[in-house]
Nucleic acid binder design. Structure first.
Length: 160
DNA sequence: CGGTTTTGACCTGCGC
DNA sequence: GCGCAGGTCAAAACCG
């Protein structure tokens, strides 16, 4: 069944067919949404469909439509940041993952009628950043993107 | 009192 | 060269 996630393997171009429609965010280029039956937070949310997506750097996007500009060098300044996006159905975007987060900015995306929230670890030494945004087509869904240290994310997964 | 939050302004990068 | 978009930081205000 979904053991191999054939949902995406079978239809990898299901959403990429129309970037204009799936253009959730230039930075939210998830390779694929993985449907997880487990609840995102074991805080009593038994009916919380969680979609886990491994965000691969530009280098991973073999089918990069906008791979025109030579990104291989000018952008190589910094290593590829690991990005993990989670789409969760929740009313509140502030999901407690076990760590403390401090909001450091809010921005409004043109492609979405909803604003985007930027959170950063309030603990020093926590190079992890969290970006929270509501789905453009489904505001009932919250997209949480984790960006930062890989180890920390591993811990986050432990909580999830 | 501390910590956090909120809004604005500012900066950078890329595109055209 | 300029504009747009996104992202970040800052100061102030507010809450617990």
């Amino acid at each position: 069944m979904s053991q191999s996630g054939s949902n995406f393997a079978g239809t990898p171009d299901s959403d990429y067919g129309d970037p204009t429609n799936f253009e959730l965010s230039e930075f939210l280029k998830f390779d694929e949404w993985e449907e997880d039956d487990q609840s995102f937070l074991a805080s009593g949310s038994t009916q919380n469909p969680v979609y886990r997506a491994h965000v691969i750097g530009e280098s991973g996007g073999a089918t990069s439509p906008h791979g025109g500009p030579s990104i291989g060098e000018g952008r190589e300044k910094k290593e590829v940041k690991e990005r993990v996006a989670f789409k969760t159905k929740s009313d509140v975007e502030i999901l407690d993952d076990g760590f403390k987060w401090r909001k450091y900015g809010k921005k409004m995306v043109k492609n979405s009628p909803n604003p985007r929230n930027y959170y950063r670890c309030s603990v020093e030494g926590c190079p992890v950043k969290k970006r929270i945004e509501r789905d453009r087509e489904d505001i009932r869904y919250v997209i949480t993107t984790y960006e930062g240290d890989y180890d920390v994310k591993i811990e986050l997964k432990t909580f999830i």
